[in-house]
């Protein structure tokens, strides 16, 4: 086993892991504010990538403008989704919520197929594709972009949750929705906020990963599930635990694909998911929480 090889797999695993972390945090934010696992989370990732593609090609926008435009549109889709599917639900039992978010995810995916077709599309990297050597391994500039943007988002996220009124209100909701409502927090608005933030984060993840992996109408399924794995490892936290969960998953997957078999790459994530759910449903770092088991 070459050290360089392991370094190479780990480095590329870290950037995929960062993407999983962003998607995972999106899952956690909605879960903590509403108790819902949003099965449509991956579709925002898909929308981010494909909307950027259209902004670049059809609207002829420069990249720096295309990104905020597509994040904004994805967020609007998130808001519409919350308004049309989640809020009016008369019997919000877990099974109904699972079914309705799955329905929403299929619908969004189907509409995307209608708009963008079934082809895989490429988005140009943000700053060229000259490899950079690190030790005995090389990485692409896009990898650095991913890590840097993820870091920025996590920091902004932290500031929002701990230093703004609405962020604190969201945290209050996640501890106890009823009590938050009693002290005058508009819980419904917080639910909407959680969808806005998650949709935006998902879209960003989809945009920054697209130059590496290409994008298509159906990328949301797998990316969404991997993000969920990250969130489970992190115990559904919207902070550092999920980030570590995502990075861990990315690296393990990359090492597994490189050293064992690339065909089983996806299976590795799901075996980890099942093991965590069976053995430590509160996540790797969390304390026992009876609600999840």
């Amino acid at each position: 086993m070459e050290f360089d090889q392991i370094l190479q797999y780990s480095l590329s695993g870290l950037s995929t892991g960062a993407i999983y972390a962003l998607i995972g945090i999106g899952f956690s934010i909605i879960y903590n504010a509403t108790g819902i696992i949003n099965f449509a989370q991956g579709e925002f990732v898909m929308l981010g990538g494909l909307l950027t593609l259209s902004s670049l090609q059809l609207l002829k926008l420069p990249l720096w403008a295309a990104i905020p435009v597509s994040v904004a549109i994805s967020t609007v889709v998130g808001v519409i989704f919350e308004r049309l599917a989640i809020r009016p639900l008369r019997q919000p039992t877990p099974i109904n919520l699972v079914i309705i978010t799955i329905g929403g995810s299929i619908l969004i995916r189907g509409l995307a197929m209608l708009v963008w077709g079934k082809d895989t599309h490429a988005i140009p990297p943000f700053s060229g594709d000259t490899p950079i050597a690190i030790g005995g391994a090389t990485i692409l500039p896009q990898h650095l972009w991913i890590l840097a943007i993820t870091l920025i988002i996590i920091v902004v996220n932290k500031i929002y949750f701990y230093h703004t009124i609405s962020g604190k209100a969201m945290r209050a909701c996640s501890y106890n929705r009823r009590a938050a409502g009693l002290v005058g927090i508009d819980v419904k608005r917080m639910v909407l906020f959680s969808f806005i933030i998650s949709a935006a984060m998902g879209a960003v993840a989809g945009i920054i990963v697209a130059p590496l992996t290409m994008t298509a109408y159906d990328v949301g399924v797998m990316l969404g599930l991997k993000g969920f794995c990250a969130a489970i490892i992190g115990g559904m936290s919207s902070g550092i635990s999920t980030v570590i969960g995502g990075l861990l998953l990315g690296v393990l997957e990359s090492l597994g694909a490189g050293l064992i078999s690339s065909g089983y790459k996806d299976a590795i994530s799901f075996i980890i998911l099942l093991l965590i759910l069976f053995i430590r449903p509160q996540g790797l770092f969390g304390k026992a929480d009876s609600e999840r088991v």
Binding site: R90, I99, I100, G103, G104, L107, G110
Partner: peptide
């Protein structure tokens, strides 16, 4: 699949 998605949502709602 668009029809499936819409059907699922409409039925639950």
């Amino acid at each position: 699949i668009i029809v499936y998605g819409a059907l699922l949502m409409v039925m639950v709602m």
